[in-house]
């Protein structure tokens, strides 16, 4: 589209800018403020420079949370993206069943996140939950409130249940937009199904796959509610991921400084990685 240059367009953008700025800039300024100050109570603050950031780098607890978070995100991406793609490939492209499938698959995405946690909480209870009882009946000792491995297994299974559909829907939309002529040409060229996937479908899905990976990375890195309701971060700190750690510190104690420094670094990590993905995506589109 040939866009005309007109600075008066700022009036149209102003309401949005004001609301988002109010919500984003003011709090962020507060956070930055706290991160470079120290208090001994009574609302008196002293400049403390980068001391909180330095402490952050040395803090074992936070390092552990970061490690857990990275592991969690890696596992979740490794499962959800290929799984979602595979499911999308198996879905019919046209027909009466398509909307039924799509609606049912979209349901987990609309469940309030605490209900997701509760659902799986109930499911996984060792004696009275469907999942818990079944696994124990198979002879595997399973109790997610006591055993860290069981807790991780349950948390990951819950996230796969919750978010894989997002990948499925994105990939499905991408697949459906490939014109029939490509499949026809492949038939005429005598290509086998694997060749069709490798040379036609996968290249054409690059854009949606990038978006899926970006979104899943971002959202899994910020995960809070589902995990807090399911395991509370436990057993112990087995499932204490970054957001949980941060909220504990921010709302729990009076350590505003460290919490603020933590917030800034956290935000920066996500921003940086997302910016990388975003540029990659834009460059792909330009090609």
């Amino acid at each position: 589209m040939n866009k005309t240059f007109n600075n008066k367009a700022w009036w149209m953008v102003l309401p949005v800018f004001l609301v988002v700025a109010f919500n984003a800039l003011v709090p962020l300024m507060t956070v930055v403020n706290y991160s470079v100050q120290e208090t001994f109570g009574n609302n008196e603050f002293f400049w403390s420079g980068t001391i909180w950031f330095q402490q952050l780098l040395d803090n074992d607890q936070i390092r552990a949370s970061l490690g857990r978070q990275i592991a969690f995100t890696a596992v979740v991406l490794a499962i959800q993206v290929p799984l979602g793609l595979a499911i999308a490939l198996c879905m019919p492209r046209k027909g009466p069943w398509v909307s039924v499938c799509l609606v049912l698959m979209a349901l987990p995405l609309l469940v309030p996140w605490n209900v997701v946690g509760s659902m799986w909480n109930i499911m996984a209870l060792p004696d009275i939950g469907l999942l818990g009882k079944t696994i124990n009946a198979l002879g595997i000792h399973y109790n997610y409130t006591r055993d860290p491995v069981a807790a991780w297994f349950t948390v990951i299974l819950m996230d796969v249940w919750h978010w894989t559909s997002l990948v499925v829907l994105l990939c499905y939309a991408g697949l459906v937009s490939i014109p029939d002529a490509y499949y026809q040409a492949a038939k005429i060229d005598g290509a086998r199904p694997w060749a069709v996937f490798r040379y036609i479908q996968l290249p054409k899905l690059k854009h949606v796959l990038t978006i899926a990976i970006l979104l899943r990375f971002m959202d899994s890195f910020m995960i809070y509610t589902e995990v807090i309701v399911l395991t509370g971060g436990g057993p112990g700190s087995a499932t204490k991921f970054l957001s949980i750690d941060l909220v504990q510190k921010a709302l729990g104690g009076f350590d505003l400084g460290p919490a603020a420094a933590f917030s800034i670094v956290y935000f920066l990590i996500i921003l940086l990685t997302s910016w990388l993905f975003y540029t990659l995506m834009m460059r792909n589109e330009a090609n």
Partner: peptide
């Protein structure tokens, strides 16, 4: 099927295999 009829078809818009070179495209069938 189209494969067994031994036909070739050129469509309204170019249908090529993006990730392959021109040589590989031609060699594909």
């Amino acid at each position: 099927t189209p494969e067994h009829r031994n036909i070739a078809q050129v469509f309204q818009f170019p249908v090529i295999y993006d990730t392959m070179t021109v040589y590989d495209n031609l060699a594909f069938p």
